[in-house]
């Protein structure tokens, strides 16, 4: 059982860059670990630190102005490699929600499987949200999974977002797909015995 997800209210970390690929979220040289722990310290490693390991002042994670557990990112977030380490890094760093106008498929699944909620909003809503955060870094946002709404508490702008009912159930109840699949093993055996195609 994982922590159940219901309502999150938080300030936001703005990352207004498009096509952020998972190599940027967590570079390949940090994928050699054999556990899921500790990836947060290398989240956005090469944007966050220089070659000597010193924080780069101009990167948003190093800017004390911004904080909170909601990451707001430009469109096509998480493209590229399927590495789930990217979702582990985001979760381990402390983010519980990622807001963007568009997510890459595999990464979106990986976030959901790690109880990080990807919230898809319109490009307009995203642009408005970025503007609010940049003009007032204390801007808070509420994400309500049950109601499937996101609300910018600064200006009251609310939008609804999609999530398939099954995944919503998983997040709200703190259960994962494996538990579901294990309960289906006898169905799977029956299906295997009945299959007619030549891949048997």
């Amino acid at each position: 059982m994982k922590e159940k997800f219901s309502v999150v209210t938080s300030r936001c970390v703005p990352l207004n860059i498009e096509n952020v690929d998972t190599d940027q979220i967590i570079p390949a040289r940090f994928l050699k670990a054999t556990s899921k722990k500790g990836f947060g310290q290398n989240l956005f490693r090469d944007w966050r630190y220089d070659g000597e390991g010193n924080p780069k002042a101009d990167f948003v994670l190093n800017d004390p102005t911004y904080g909170g557990c909601i990451l707001v990112a430009g469109k096509n977030f998480g493209c590229g490699s399927s590495r789930e380490h990217a979702a582990w890094a985001i979760s381990d760093y402390g983010f519980r929600v990622v807001v963007s106008s568009f997510f890459a498929d595999i990464h979106k699944n990986n976030e959901l499987n790690n109880f990080v909620l990807p919230v898809v909003v319109s490009e307009q809503y995203l642009a408005d949200l970025f503007e609010c955060i940049y003009s007032d870094p204390s801007t808070e946002v509420t994400v309500d999974l049950a109601a499937q709404t996101i609300t910018n508490l600064k200006n009251g702008h609310t939008a609804t977002f999609d999530i398939n009912p099954y995944k919503k159930h998983c997040l709200m109840e703190g259960v994962d797909d494996i538990e579901f699949l294990l309960s289906k093993r006898s169905d799977i055996e029956r299906w295997e015995a009945d299959r007619r195609d030549a891949c048997k």
């Binding site: 399927s82 789930e84 979702a87 595999i106 699944n109 990986n110 499987n113 797909d177 494996i178 699949l181």
Partner: peptide, 10 residues
Amino acid sequence: FGIGTSEVEM
């Protein structure tokens, strides 16, 4: 198609 590690476990 490619999958994440949670799905590898599945």
